[in-house]
Design a protein around this nucleic acid. Structure first.
Lengths: 207, 207
DNA sequence: GTCTATATCTGGATAGAC
DNA sequence: GTCTATCCAGATATAGAC
């Protein structure tokens, strides 16, 4: 590694070039993906020269990897504390729904970006620790033993909950065109969505 | 239009070049999208020369449009007859689930292809007639008046049903990596999925 | 560290022989 | 209709002055 690590943060007032590049790269890559993004576009947005991108990150591939690893870890909300809480499976799922939808409302490009990248090269995902499902499943079986939830396939169920959270953001353009609604309408829809999903979750899980 | 229309179908035994190109283009574009696809790759797969692609379809854009329009119309299952049937809303939704999942099992690349294309250029979707939602909603309100279904937001509900059908195919790589399952395991999961979703649908809709 | 200029390569598109 | 050869724009990457 011959990459410089930002070492002049305390001396200068202005934001370091490295940070500016990372911010610009994030914006461009998230909106357009790897193939659709141009180094020139990133340079323009960062207000610097194309050559600087290579000076700091060597290649488009390396810059992209840096962005992806950072964003992928944000794709699912943090649920460690959630799992440790002394609440029922149903309640955990309800809180998860709220966390995930709020996260996606703030990062609407995240799902398509992550899915496309993994689809093209699933080596990316192999490096990531992803124990979300199994953590949830444990909690489910505890409550099943206590007869607090209906007997079903937890994998299918959790897949369904995630689907209901994530898919609307992926299909937004089709949805808005097909039923002719505006961006504001969509936002209200997503604002009401956690409550709606939570009703479904309770209807499905109640024994 | 100076494009030749395949006129030698009845004389020759061999498949016309136009058909071969379309088949190859479909495969490549579906797997890699517009940006990720190369004209050379399509030519190789069709077993012909790159120049022929331009002879028949003039440009990459036009060839892509041709493929997209054909595939987009397949993205949602045909539901006209379904709507005309004298069955309840709940039953219609259940049949829809089965139709859509079977369709996607046969065309697993379709969702990502359609979503990416529309995301890049939503002019594509504007040309398409998409009255799936409103047809379903009408049926819902009929049954609501007869007290046969619970009172809820039909748009949110239908969005949820579609999410549960489509999203697993989009997230397959992440899912398989994260819980460490094989392609066969995924296929069994999708084989069982319609029954599982139909259980959820009944639990949510039953008053 | 930052710039300009340039090298190099890739990929879509065309010309022209057959 | 089909091919080979080639053109040319656009994009990544590097060289070298400051």
């Amino acid at each position: 590694m011959v990459k410089p690590i930002s070492q002049t943060m305390e001396k200068t007032e202005k934001i370091s070039t490295e940070i500016k590049i990372l911010a610009a790269a994030e914006e461009v890559f998230l909106k357009s993906g790897y193939d659709g993004s141009r180094m020139q576009e990133i340079a323009d947005l960062a207000g610097i020269n194309k050559a600087m991108l290579h000076y700091y990150f060597r290649s488009k591939d390396l810059l992209f990897e840096r962005i992806f690893e950072q964003k992928f870890s944000q794709f699912f909300p943090k649920i460690q504390e959630l799992m440790a809480m002394p609440i029922s499976f149903t309640e955990k799922v309800c809180i998860y729904v709220e966390l995930h939808i709020n996260l996606l409302r703030q990062n609407p490009y995240l799902p398509l970006f992550v899915i496309n990248t993994v689809h093209k090269n699933n080596d990316f995902v192999k490096k990531m620790p992803l124990l979300l499902m199994s953590e949830f499943a444990k909690s489910y079986y505890t409550d099943l033993a206590a007869n607090k939830v209906k007997d079903l396939n937890p994998l299918q169920f959790l897949m369904s909950v995630m689907s209901m959270c994530v898919f609307p953001f992926l299909s937004k353009p089709i949805l808005c065109s097909s039923i002719n609604i505006s961006d504001q309408d969509f936002d209200t829809l997503m604002n009401n969505r956690p409550e709606e999903i939570k009703r479904y979750v309770r209807a499905i899980l109640t024994p």
